[in-house]
């Protein structure tokens, strides 16, 4: 195999000027996670108990459902960026790396969509009878 063309040698190998966006997004979502998870922990510890009635009423409030949805977006975005670096560092075979990155994207988008749907459904429609 020859060395190929100039563009062929560099394609897919590194910075395409998206690196700094990845870095900044990781920090921004980190800040979002910091605030929103701190809110979740405090909010949960302030509940009188963890019976279904209590947590169901808690999660139905707009002041809980909205930050909870924002938290899921921020966390899964952060997970995507973080585990992407993880995969890029430890999977050296290009095929395996691509497969793992695909799996990661399916996981974060699927899990986030599921969580957001559940919170929204609960807040809009209430508990099934």
């Amino acid at each position: 195999m020859g060395n190929g063309t100039e563009i062929g040698r560099v394609r897919g190998l590194g910075s395409a000027k998206h690196g700094s966006k990845h870095w900044i997004d990781q920090r921004l979502t980190a800040l979002g996670n910091l605030l929103l998870t701190a809110w979740l922990v405090i909010s949960l510890l302030m509940l009188p108990n963890f019976q279904h009635e209590t947590v169901a009423a808690w999660m139905a409030q707009p002041s809980v459902a909205v930050p909870l949805i924002l938290m899921l977006v921020s966390i899964f975005w952060h997970v995507k960026l973080g585990l992407q670096v993880f995969i890029e560092d430890y999977f050296h075979d290009e095929g395996n790396k691509l497969a793992m990155l695909t799996l990661l994207n399916f996981y974060v988008i699927g899990a986030a969509a599921f969580g957001i749907f559940m919170v929204a459904k609960h807040a809009f429609a209430g508990v099934p009878a």
Binding site: E53, M59, L68, A111, G115, M118
Partner: peptide, 12 residues
Amino acid sequence: LLWWIASIAGGA
């Protein structure tokens, strides 16, 4: 966490 959230939405 998602399991917990889904179980709340799913009812008692």
